[in-house]
Each structure stands twice: as structure tokens, then as C-alpha cells.
Computed example of a mutant assay.
Amino acid sequence: MVDRIGFVGLGHMGNPMSAHIAASGAPLTVYDIDPALTRAHAAEIGATPAADLAELGRNSDVVVTMLPTGQVVRQAVLEQGLADTLAKGSLIIDMSSSVPTGSVTLHDELEKRGIGFIDAPVSGAVPRAKTATLAIMVGASDEAQFARAEPILKLMGDRIFRTGGVGTGHAMKALNNYVAAAGFAAASEALILGEKFGLNPETALDIINVSTGRNFSTEATLKTEVLTRAFKSGFGLALLTKDVKIAADLSESLDAGLPLVAETSAWWDRALAELGAEKDHTEAFTVWEATART
């Protein structure tokens, strides 16, 4: 791999993802808003720490961003010096969960500077980030840019899906997370209703998991995080709520008039308002449980 790679965002996901890139031997520069984290992580994985985004841009041909929102990505790229120091012909790969229309706009603005942009959000959360087995959804409007990014993406994921033009990866990520959020909410309500009628939640979950109602949440997080009251899946409530809202906003912007995505978004918004952004998404169960008791 001849490209020098920059990685922006060293949180729960970015930490192991950037480590896999470093392990490949590729020249890697890393940056996080936390300078101490940047230095410590760079030393741990054998990468070069950047003092700011301008420095990272000067040292990179391809930059991967893994940040909380598309707005933060836009600020990093256009307002904090990254695009100013990237050379023409450079490529930005946004692996964050961003608004699809915002990704299209950012792509168009960067294209005028001679900088490429593709969106490549992921599914699999922290466990699969650690094992480099993420599913990656890639929206790219240029075949050469996709070909350039693919070897880098394969260092972090084992299933690379080409979804279409720029923005389609972020749309697919939001839609997937909406389905996951709806499944978690529906299964939670089933357990809450069942318990109110006298059913044992563990028994109910065992039956669902050998029946047609099973989904990822019934097979994984409800058993390990909700019934145990651990609430430590590693996926934040604010992040999931944001992704569901992206899906709901997409429905509205396309005049689709689909009711379930809007109701699901409102249900998660309520949990976020009551619990706060720092909580794990599985703890939303407690809000819905309390609602059923009133």
C-alpha cells in the first residue's frame, strides 16, 4: 500500500480500527481532539501523532474519519484545517454515521478542491471493530476512488458492500440501525407486556428466539444486557437515536409518509430525553418499562 493514511477519531471504534491499519505496516498518522489520547494511542500502535488536523493533512494521502456526527466531520474537514493541507488528488473516507444529504454536499465541495470523498459507515460495533470483521457500506461516485479505498477498508472489515453513489452508504447505515432500533423496541415491549401478564421474561425470550419473532436484540443484547441489567453493550443511546432520526428525516424529505420510522424515532427520542446522551442504548428499556407501570 503506497498511500500515507491519516485516521481522525480514536474513540471506542476508531481505536481498534486504526490499530488494524497500523498493524498492516501502512504509514499511519492519527489525531483525536484529546491530545493525550492521540499521543498514547500512537505510541501503542506504532503510528505518528498529529498535533492538529492541518498536520495530519500534510502527512496523509488518504484520510479516514470516524467521528460522532456528520456535522463534526464537516467541521474537521472544512473548518479545522484538514482540507486546506490535503494535496489535490487526496481522498477522504468518512466511516462515521452521517446524514446522507450532508455527505453529498461535502463531496461536492471537496470535489471543487480536487479532493475525493466517499462514505463508508460500518456495522458490527466494538466487538467486530476489534476483530476487523466489520460490515462496511460504501457510497462512492468514482470507481477509481473506490478501488483506492477498498484495500484500506479490508483492513477493518471482512464484508465490503458497494451501495451506490456518495451518500448511499450513510443512508444504508441509518436504515439498518432503524431496523435494529425498531426490533429492540418491539422485543422490549413484548417482554414488558408479557411480564405484566405474568410471563417470565427469560422464558418469553427463549420462546421468541426459537420462533419467528427473533432478531439480533432478542438473541444478543436483551439477554446479555437487559435481563442482567448490565446495560453495557458499548453502543451509546445518543448514537442510535441519531441514526434513527436520520432514517426518519430521510422518509420525511422523500415524502414517503412512512409511520413506523417516525414513531420509532419519537420513542427513542423520549428515552434519550429521560436518560441523557451518555447512557447505553439498552438502558432505554427502563424508560419504556416505567411507562408501562404508570
Rank of each mutant, 00 (worst) to 15 (best):
I92E: 07
I92K: 06
I93N: 03
I93P: 03
D94S: 07
M95H: 09
M95Q: 14
M95D: 04
S98W: 02
S98A: 15
S103V: 09
T105R: 06
T105H: 03
T105S: 05
L106N: 09
H107R: 12
E109M: 01
E109S: 01
E111W: 03
E111P: 00
K112C: 02
D119L: 07
G124E: 02
G124T: 09
A125F: 12
A125T: 14
A125P: 03
A125C: 12
V126Y: 07
R128D: 08
R128A: 04
A132H: 14
L134R: 04
A135V: 15
A135D: 13
M137G: 04
M137L: 14
G139I: 15
S141F: 00
D142R: 12
E143N: 08
E143T: 13
A147N: 11
E150W: 00
E150D: 14
P151T: 04
I152W: 06
I152T: 04
L153W: 02
M156H: 07
M156W: 09
M156T: 07
M156Y: 08
G157L: 04
R159E: 06
R159D: 08
G164D: 03
G164S: 13
V166R: 04
G169C: 08
G169P: 02
A174M: 10
N177H: 05
Y178M: 12
A180D: 03
A181L: 08
A182G: 10
A182I: 05
A182P: 01
A182R: 01
F184R: 00
A185C: 07
A187H: 05
E189F: 06
E189D: 14
E189R: 08
I192P: 11
L193S: 06
E195Y: 02
E195V: 09
F197K: 12
G198T: 10
P201E: 05
P201G: 02
P201I: 03
E202P: 00
T203R: 15
